[in-house]
Design a binder for these strands. Structure first.
Lengths: 239, 239
DNA sequence: TCTTTATTGTAACATTTTGTTACAATAGTA
DNA sequence: TACTATTGTAACAAAATGTTACAATAAAGA
């Protein structure tokens, strides 16, 4: 299930019963964060979502929606699973939200029907994103993955599955780099890996492995102001 | 897009614009096979498909559909991707099929609308499956993966993506075992791996690796009637 | 019965990858 | 100038994988 897409009125022009939800990951302060919308009327939080126009690619709908919530273009964005259990169906939160907004919807309102949602996850540079609420939410903010608020419907499950997908694809597709600014130290990269995998890695082995992949380019030294050797800044080389 | 689901009339009781397609893999004669339906009126072949009842889990709909086409229960079945490009939309094949069946559908017929399809892949024991056509197809047969007929819409792409998913999950989830009968030789298992990965493996290393995983149980010797040492039959030990 | 043939199971060694420990280099502090 | 904390990397160990070789053996042929 999902938030109101821009300009969605009575569901005209949109694919019925189908939504998109995005797990937008950021990395800051050695922590993985997820972007969530808040609905004060229900006390619930939700993943940013949207709908698919009748003539629109689903990937494009997802991309546009993530751009609206973050202000970012050229985002790493991948579909990971489609959630279609009937038990997901629970119109109550949406009804409460709509009532609080002043409209008492009829029970056959399109937003109160069963939705199947296509899950995407995005990896963004935390320092560049500008969280932006949608029309019916009260806020859009980052939350620590290990301290999430109570989420609407099965959104906690969606986040869990997104993380599992990320863990598997981390080495294989080198997705982790998408969470860092253009330039980063080896320690920062290692901490991204450690946070996503949920375990500590051996520094020497990690550094050797990363350098052996021939995907890092040394940029400069980074003077940290600390009393020890300055780390190098690296940049991810796109093949 | 997809074939007619059992009892689907005018789309009532089904999720609109949503379909399921299954890439059902079998293994026989050292070859990977895929189950396809034929529509003689169009000269086209298609993946087995179906629709989702309004109150049904998508996984259940997929499971039932695969059971209808194979006669098998307890199938290895996994969702792998949802295909949602607008360019998939092409009502012509379905219109031709329906016309050939005697009904000239109005152009707003529900089966001629845009569909987004949820892709599943299944791994079945070739020797146990009983291919069964659906109501509007002329046949249901196995086809070699490397010699597929011309397929409807983007079904060739769907098969390609299913194979890629299978290749990645082969080691990780040990999915390959689901393509073999209960008992099999190490050579048969290796040939499943080689066919799926599209490359030859080193026999000694493969055998050592498989045995080291502690997932194989030795059952008996298999007298092949050939003039050489008889191989052992193994069985996959479910944890 | 004995030899031949083709294939299997596995040992032995080589190579590569990963785990572990150690240490020199160094930016700032005392 | 010594001290501290962290980085980069070498060196060795252990584990995993690649490669070669060979004994075991079921059936066919002499």
């Amino acid at each position: 299930m999902s938030k109101q897409g821009d300009g969605a009125k009575e569901g005209e022009g949109f694919m019925a019963g189908l939504a998109i939800d995005a797990v937008i990951f950021g990395f800051h302060d050695r922590q993985l964060k997820v972007l969530l919308l808040e609905y004060k009327s229900t006390g619930l939080f939700a993943l940013p979502g949207g709908f698919i126009k009748d003539t629109e690619d689903v990937d494009d709908a997802a991309k546009k929606m993530v751009t609206r919530r973050t202000g970012l273009h050229d985002i790493f964005l991948e579909q990971f699973y489609t959630f279609g259990d009937y038990s997901r169906f629970d119109p109550e939160p949406m009804r409460a939200i709509m009532s609080a907004k002043g409209t008492m919807p009829p029970s056959d309102h399109w937003l109160l029907q069963r939705f199947i949602t296509i899950g995407y996850y995005a990896l963004v540079d935390f320092t560049q994103a500008i969280p932006t609420p949608d029309e019916i939410s009260d806020s859009c903010k980052w939350y620590q993955l290990d301290a999430l608020p109570v989420l609407m419907q099965d959104h906690a499950l969606i986040i869990k599955k997104a993380l599992e997908t990320l863990q598997v694809s981390l080495d294989q597709k080198l997705t982790g780099f998408n969470l860092l600014p253009e330039q980063f130290t080896m320690g920062e990269l290692q901490s991204v890996y450690e946070t996503i995998l949920g375990k500590t890695l051996i520094r020497a082995a990690f550094q050797r492995k990363m350098l052996s992949l021939d995907i890092l380019e040394l940029v400069a030294k980074k003077m940290t102001g600390k009393a020890h050797k300055a780390p190098y800044l690296y940049r991810f080389v796109k093949k």
